[in-house]
């Protein structure tokens, strides 16, 4: 779980541990944060536009999907990946099984499921739909109809 000002870290795709800063902490001292290889954790209430300028310097961005019905993370992911063209890792943290395909299509590329979903068949929910009706950050492997 992510709580205010609690420093957490995630292991990235390359197996390195990345310490995560809040958006405020990141923009307070971007140069030294870049140097020390810090990543950013974004909560649903954060304004991701604050990251836009320094976006491509961030090694990893974690979006917090802890609240099932709070859909702001999907727009945050879309802006970061699709609009601003961020090519680094976007990690969905505290993710929910039933929302995996929504997250992945919005531009999240790795995820940490909440513990309650351990042992579930993830593929049912990452690939539940093979057809899509709209442009998205990532429609890989889907038949597109629009």
């Amino acid at each position: 779980m992510v709580e205010d000002s609690e420093i957490i870290s995630v292991v990235n795709e390359q197996g390195e541990s990345i310490e995560l800063l809040s958006v405020d902490e990141w923009i307070a001292d971007i140069d030294s944060n870049v140097e020390s290889g810090k990543g950013v954790v974004v909560t649903p209430a954060d304004d991701v536009e604050l990251l836009q300028e320094s976006l491509h310097k961030i090694p990893l961005i974690a979006l917090d999907f802890v609240s099932f019905d709070d859909g702001r993370g999907y727009s945050q992911a879309t802006l970061i990946r699709k609009r601003w063209g961020y090519s680094g890792e976007i990690r969905g943290i505290n993710a929910h099984l039933d929302q995996l395909q929504f997250m992945l299509r919005s531009g999240v590329n790795t995820y940490d499921l909440q513990e309650q979903y351990q042992g579930s068949n993830e593929r049912d929910y990452t690939h539940g739909f093979s057809i899509c009706y709209q442009v998205a950050a990532n429609n890989d492997g889907m038949k597109q109809k629009f």
Binding site: Y74, T78, Q101, R105, Y133, A136, F146
Partner: peptide, 16 residues
């Protein structure tokens, strides 16, 4: 066309 576009839309399926 509009119905289709917003059918299981990845970004807008968990609105307020």
């Amino acid at each position: 066309l509009i119905r289709r576009w917003f059918n299981i839309h990845p970004e807008f399926s968990w609105l307020p």
